[in-house]
């Protein structure tokens, strides 16, 4: 065997080993979630690699809300959906209108708005928790899902505007001009030309905004109080303060909660990656 071939083979083996290590590293936490979710409460702290008596009882318990910390699981799931969908819709509405106004109607100094929006990312979300809490308190919005929606939209919108701005650069201005010559008003151009051509970016940003609020804990915990208003992440946080060690229920609930984003991601995957990458290669 020549040295070059040996080198190639060794490189291949090293790549394979490294790849396997990365796969294991990534999958182990997920596997652990599933393993604990399939166990009986008493077996949760056992060191078995695979549950000795696998059972779907934990999933049934979650589905039927048959445990005291899960009593309002579906209500909380509904709240998560409501907040997630509202955040996605509002982010898309504000983002597209802003990018259309700046990019297509060519308002003066529009670039300043885009840059100023991006500047908001200089300050981490958690730093603004107390000021936001104060503002929502003044508006009488504490313990109101609208407060969480408002905050999440605030954080999602700058990124949305940036991506829409970049993406819309790939749509020829001539299309707008042709429509204008045919007598189309700005709203008509927006709805009939701009939005349909922005579909991949809309899917990408809509999914991004939904996931941002879906996984949000800090603001949901700070701004929501009563059980009827809580989202699933905050509800699951209550498990961490219990003597009864129901980790199997916690894992089962987490797996169920992770399903909707997965479905959304895989449904829109192709459009989503298209939307994000096209925004990034605007020439």
């Amino acid at each position: 065997m020549t040295t070059a071939r040996l080198d190639r083979r060794l490189t291949g083996i090293a790549t394979l080993v490294f790849g396997l290590f990365l796969i294991l590293w990534s999958i182990l936490p997920l596997y652990n979630m599933v393993r604990v979710g399939l166990q009986h409460k008493e077996d949760v702290f056992s060191n078995n690699t695979w549950p000795p008596h696998p059972t779907l009882d934990s999933f049934r318990t979650v589905l039927h809300e048959a445990y005291w910390l899960l009593q309002n699981f579906w209500g909380q799931m509904g709240n998560s959906f409501y907040i997630g969908v509202a955040v996605a819709l509002l982010t898309l509405t504000i983002g597209t209108l802003t990018s259309f106004t700046i990019g297509r109607m060519r308002i003066r100094q529009g670039w300043m708005l885009t840059n100023a929006a991006l500047m908001t990312y200089v300050i981490p979300m958690s730093f603004l928790a107390i000021p936001f809490y104060g503002i929502m308190g003044k508006y009488g919005l504490t313990n109101n899902p609208l407060a969480v929606i408002a905050v999440e939209v605030t954080f999602a919108t700058p990124y949305a505007i940036f991506i829409f701005q970049q993406y819309s650069g790939s749509i020829p201005q001539e299309l707008d001009e042709a429509a204008r010559i045919d007598g189309a008003s700005p709203p008509q151009i927006f709805f009939r030309i701009y939005l349909p051509l922005m579909a991949p970016a809309l899917v990408a940003i809509g999914t991004y905004a939904l996931l941002l609020s879906w996984n949000e804990y800090l603001y949901a915990f700070l701004l929501l109080s009563s059980d009827g208003n809580l989202t699933v992440p905050v509800g699951l946080g209550k498990f961490l303060n219990s003597d009864e060690a129901p980790w199997n229920y916690l894992m089962a609930a987490s797996i169920i909660y992770a399903i909707p984003p997965l479905v959304i991601y895989y449904t829109f995957r192709r459009k989503m990656s298209g939307g994000l990458t096209m925004g990034g290669v605007k020439g």
Partner: peptide, 14 residues
């Protein structure tokens, strides 16, 4: 969480 939330509330008077 209660303590964190209360401290936040005390900061802003709510």
């Amino acid at each position: 969480d209660l303590i964190t939330k209360l401290i936040a509330g005390m900061q802003v008077g709510d």
